[in-house]
Amino acid sequence: MTEPNQEAMHHPHHHLPKRIILVRHGESQGNLDTAAYTTTPDNKIQLTPSGLAQARQAGNHLYNILSNDENKNWRVYFYVSPYDRTRSTLREIGRSFKKERIIGVREECRVREQDFGNFQVKERMKVIKESRERFGRFFYRFPEGESAADVFDRVSGFLESLWRDIDMKRVHRDPSHDLNLIIVSHGLTCRVFLMKWFKWTVEQFEHLNNPGNCEFRIMQLGPGGEYSLAIHHTDEEMLEWGLSPEMIDDQKWRMHANKGDWNEKCPWYLDEFFDHVADSDTESDDKENGSSGMCD
């Protein structure tokens, strides 16, 4: 038996990325002054000098995290939104990595920003965003633009392509290397990505806070083949992001769960919908007969 096959037997998840890291772009001109959107297309909004510095700092931070691995043969593959501010963020992040560490980069249109329409009228957009707060962030669709639900659909399509890339080893050809996928995107898109991946509900999404500029969320692979935010991030961080205690408990469960396992303690998987239903036929019969099910 050859050495690679022996390794595959002992490490059944060797072909999976060790980490999937979501990075929001650095501070942009639009973050600094929303009037920028009235004259500049959203995809052409540039980073500020502070945003460029944030991206370089994020690159240093990411490099330090990856280089501290026991396996020094790590590699990265980047996906990036086609917007100028995300592309510029990636260029600055990339300054921290040598080319030998980078497997490749792909511009991915499906992880772009939520479409807010075309040129934005500042006062009109203020009213629209107030309406969104009343209507709900997930289902509210911007006039001539998208809802977060629309973003969810295209992110779902991206995830299907991502898994095909992984399964067909398009992004990872050497099993001795730890693969890290870094997705440079936008705040809402990152939140929707996590919602889709971890099967969070719409209500849970509504409570999530937007990542700050160049903040990142690290989903790390556990020994059983499940990804978890809790391997790298603290409870305090996840609470700040808007995760509930139950969601954090689920992340901790995922740290050691086997791939494909079902967390029966997750209330939003079952009890959220069937908390009024009896646990068993016996319990149901007991209730109908007026019995507590206990011996007198």
Rank of each mutant, 00 (worst) to 15 (best):
M1R: 05
M1S: 11
M1W: 03
T2F: 08
T2Q: 07
P4M: 07
Q6C: 04
A8M: 14
H10G: 11
H11V: 09
H13R: 05
H13V: 03
H15E: 03
H15Y: 09
H15S: 06
L16Y: 14
P17I: 00
I20G: 12
G26R: 05
L32K: 07
L32Y: 04
L32C: 09
D33W: 05
A35N: 09
T39Y: 01
Q46T: 06
G51M: 01
Q54D: 02
Q54I: 01
A55W: 04
R56K: 09
R56G: 12
G59L: 01
G59V: 02
N60T: 13
H61F: 09
I65S: 06
K72F: 05
V76Y: 08
P82A: 05
L90G: 02
I93G: 04
I93F: 02
K98W: 06
R101S: 06
I103M: 01
I103W: 00
R106Y: 09
C109V: 14
R110F: 14
V111P: 02
V111E: 03
E113P: 03
E113G: 06
Q114R: 15
D115G: 10
N118K: 14
N118D: 14
N118H: 11
N118A: 13
K122S: 11
V127N: 07
E130L: 13
S131Y: 01
R137D: 08
E146S: 04
S147H: 08
D150S: 11
D150W: 04
V151R: 08
D153T: 13
S156I: 06
G157L: 15
L159M: 03
L162T: 03
I166R: 08
V171E: 03
V171I: 15
H172D: 08
P175A: 01
H177W: 04
H177Y: 06
H177E: 12
D178I: 08
L179M: 15
N180C: 00
N180W: 11
L181G: 10
I183A: 06
I183Y: 09
H186L: 15
L188M: 14
V192H: 03
L194V: 07
M195W: 02
F198T: 05
W200P: 01
V202F: 08
V202Q: 10
F205S: 11
N209H: 14
N209Q: 14
P211R: 06
E215Q: 13
F216W: 09
F216I: 01
R217F: 15
M219Y: 00
L221R: 14
G222L: 02
G225T: 02
G225I: 01
Y227V: 02
S228A: 03
I231P: 07
H232E: 05
H232T: 03
D235G: 03
W241C: 11
S244Q: 07
P245Q: 02
M247T: 01
I248T: 01
D249V: 00
D250N: 07
Q251E: 07
W253R: 01
M255G: 00
M255Q: 02
H256I: 05
W262V: 12
K265M: 11
C266F: 05
L270S: 12
D271I: 14
E272P: 00
D279Q: 10
D281M: 15
T282D: 07
S284W: 13
D286E: 07
K287L: 08
K287N: 06
K287I: 05
E288A: 13
E288Q: 10
N289H: 12
N289D: 12
S291M: 09
C295Q: 06
D296K: 12
